[in-house]
Design a protein around this nucleic acid. Structure first.
Lengths: 327, 327
DNA sequence: ATATTATGTGTAACCGGTTACACATTACAG
DNA sequence: CTGTAATGTGTAACCGGTTACACATAATAT
């Protein structure tokens, strides 16, 4: 392995000059720059990032903390983060916390020791102070941690409103709203938006807490649909829940969307695979991930953050689980 | 940050002794061990892995190369790899190559510079020599690279046979087999198994190449079903393809499984979410990932590898896209 | 003409570990 | 009782970068 000393020798300068040239800081004469550049190319020199990390206590690693890699929403997000990070020369370490706080802490500790440059946090296993005390650049993605931490979220309230309104507009009179995990702020915002819409429309509705997991959603919804035959519209806080609801409807022989309309939330590509394809409030997943990555990198590189709250608009994607619009 | 020198001072020994104690190699007297242990605890010392990596040219990082993080099969695999790696003290870096050889090479180069301990490769973007020349422990997962590289794959031939036979047993007389990407060995094994079954049963069949992507599968299958109304059974080389086929069937108003039976391959949990739920040849995804991780770690730690070819049995999971067994 | 500032470079210490090697002591074999 | 092996420890070099600081020269200000 060629080192910076080899390069220095070949270029006839000191290691300090080589380092300065490589990092573009300090003074380097034109002459020296040319010599170093030639030596680097001739020797095929590649900088050792481990040595650099040891010395600078920095790295080009970004941690992306995900609660559940098995929920398609997160891989789609991860892909966007990765895309952007790579173009800026950062490597993303995916941390699947599996909704286990211990696992998440373990990841954070391990990566801090590796001088990780920062974290993008999409999970909500740990409480806010824990992230705030990290002494590291952090971006909250798809959730709010606190006002000091730059945040990228969808306009969840608006989405909640839109989904509810869409069902009402299409004739649903008895709604079921599937709330997300109680401790998940974005899910609560969706609920607030939903309630908002309910106040402006006089339709009956009920709500139920439901984890973002298919099988649980299926059984919870199936039970409710059996107890309450009037329900003719379900709005889920996530597409995975909606998939469960759709399954439940099928299990009970309900015609979707004729007897029961369903709207999900997320806009994961899996929605298109279902039958009927899922109508949903689509988040701009790629954009969210991309912005989160950019904001984190800005922070890492000490650039000013213009706005701490990036609220991304959502959109209603009408597919098969709702009736044609009743305008 | 407390260093090994702080510990040495506090324990009244040299850094070499501390290091030997920490790594459990070389001679350390009982007395010294106790003193060091106490000092470590008192000072809350934690070893700096970056410094260690620089010195040893080793790390506890494992790279997991995935072709497409968006295909649910891979996150499920990743989870298993991660689980096992974590218990052995390794950290997994997920490398989503996005089926782009350049991206994959970039990952490999970046991680080699970080003294990555080894790779688990599930992608097939690069040719065999590239992986073989890595000078690093490698495990091939869900694909074969060559005989020198330890391999974990499903019994794909058997799976191909089973799926085909299952359709025939359930009355399908005109099969369509969706082949996977031509350069993907495991998919070809599934095809071989399928053909084997075809030779033992006199049923008509046709095959078509089809990428492991939902939308393409849907349109390819829809076209074929329109051209050939006789097809009454589809066997897909992956569940994602099968999802596309199911969608195509729905688009054309075909009753599944009455008019058309469908069997997928993989056993991803998404199969349960579809309607009807997908009958499939299930791979033991968790087991595959777990074994791959263990075999890689064995290699890394210089332990002997008992068998280079780990073929994991598959199983037929009968759900809703096939008729009840005709025994 | 002198003081000050900008430009340019090299030496050597440092980041925090590992480990070769030299040196000591103790145990055991012959 | 001596020779050899096993046990135990410390010093100092090394991994491959970064950078504070000292020093030199050229450019500009006064």
């Amino acid at each position: 392995m060629t080192t910076i000393r080899d390069v220095a020798k070949k270029a006839g300068v000191s290691v300090a000059t080589v380092s300065r040239f490589l990092n573009g800081n300090g003074y380097v004469s034109q002459e020296a720059a040319i010599a170093v550049k030639a030596a680097v190319e001739e020797l095929n020199y590649e900088l050792n990032t481990v040595a650099r990390s040891l010395s600078t206590k920095k790295s080009n690693l970004i941690g992306l903390i995900l609660p559940d890699i098995t929920n398609p929403f997160f891989p789609e997000l991860a892909r966007a983060v990765e895309d952007v990070a790579l173009t800026y020369g950062y490597t993303v370490v995916l941390c699947n916390s599996d909704e286990d706080p211990k696992k998440e802490k373990n990841y954070i500790e391990t990566l801090k020791k590796k001088y990780i440059a920062g974290f993008i946090v999409t999970s909500n296993q740990l409480d806010a102070p824990h992230y705030a005390n990290l002494k590291l650049p952090v971006v909250a993605l798809d959730r709010v941690i606190n006002e000091q931490i730059p945040t990228v979220v969808s306009n969840n309230r608006q989405g909640g409103f839109m989904g509810a309104q869409a069902l009402v507009d299409r004739g649903s009179k008895n709604l079921l709203f599937l709330r997300g995990p109680e401790d998940f702020g974005s899910a609560n915002d969706r609920y607030i938006g939903f309630k908002d819409a309910m106040e402006r429309n006089s339709v009956a509705y009920e709500t139920v807490f439901c984890p973002f997991h298919f099988a649980e959603s299926e059984s919870i919804v199936e039970k409710i649909l059996q107890d309450n035959k009037d329900i003719d519209g379900i709005f889920a806080s996530s597409d995975v829940q909606a998939a469960g609801a759709l399954k439940a409807a099928h299990n009970l022989g309900l015609a979707v969307p004729k007897d029961l309309q369903i709207i999900g939330f997320d806009g994961i590509s899996m929605g298109e695979m279902m039958t009927p394809a899922l109508t949903t409030i689509a988040q701009d997943i790629y954009k969210m991930g991309a912005i989160a990555a950019r904001v984190l990198i800005k922070q890492i590189e000490g650039q000013p953050i213009d706005n701490f709250m990036n609220e991304i608009p959502v959109s209603l994607v009408v597919r098969g689980t709702t009736k044609g619009a009743v305008t």
